[in-house]
Design a protein around this nucleic acid. Structure first.
Lengths: 118, 118
DNA sequence: CGTATGGTTAAGCATGGACTTGAGTATTGA
DNA sequence: TCAATACTCAAGTCCATGCTTAACCATACG
């Protein structure tokens, strides 16, 4: 399993509405810090702090040219989280399959009816 | 887009190592509250609180029979989060495609080299 | 040059969230 | 029926986190 700390940082970063809104905006396209701050009622400094956390989590990168910092989503920043999620879901599937098996053994003549088709 | 509050609750619930560990254990199979509490150094009450949060988030269900509460992963509890993630990733892909297009237009004779094959 | 713009950093505050303890309820088993 | 088990609930503590303000730098513009 890949580094657990990456998952932790990603999830913490995303578990905040403002940061999620920033991610949502950035997933449409790059933006400057003050562009990102505009929609929010909070101060610019607060947004900068959120951006710092997003960068530490590996979800966002930024580079400064002149006096403006341009932020963008880091492609692949969601991969660790995606893998973790996929693994959870596959394990849950496995559980349901085993349940099916058990039910099938309990009434061998019938067809288990509670699972959605493949 | 599906209910935003669901995403919020899922992410908040998962942004905590203990709760994630509980999820990981439950994705292997159902367990009682005290089974879940065993591996942790914390008190039982703390684990119960975590379970409450996980249930509120829709990731876990439980039912009490006799004096023991059995907890299990809610199949489909990860769907909203999975959809959100997938959408982010697809939007990021779109950005990269547009970038490819721009680069291709800048040097029409060359092949863009920075993307992995389809 | 001077001023505005865009961002950075630090300090302090306030709230939320994780944890503990302790007391209580309901079930089970001897 | 008594004790152990398996939670449940309430109250209180404490620390992390998000926010603000304020001072500060660097770059761009008239």
């Amino acid at each position: 399993m890949l580094n657990h700390t990456t998952i932790d940082r990603s999830l913490r970063a995303l578990a905040e509405p403002t940061r999620r809104a920033i991610i949502e905006k950035l997933s449409v396209g790059p933006a400057s810090v003050s562009d990102l701050a505009k929609p929010f009622a909070t101060s610019l400094a607060a947004v900068v702090q959120h951006l710092q956390i997003l960068e530490d989590s590996g979800l966002v990168t930024s580079e400064k040219v002149g006096r403006v910092r341009t932020c963008r989503i880091e492609a692949g920043g969601f991969d660790a989280l995606g893998d973790w999620l996929a693994q959870r879901r596959s394990l849950v599937e496995r559980q349901l399959d085993r349940l099916d098996t058990v039910l099938a053994e309990l009434r061998p003549a019938g067809r288990s009816a509670h699972r959605k088709g493949k």
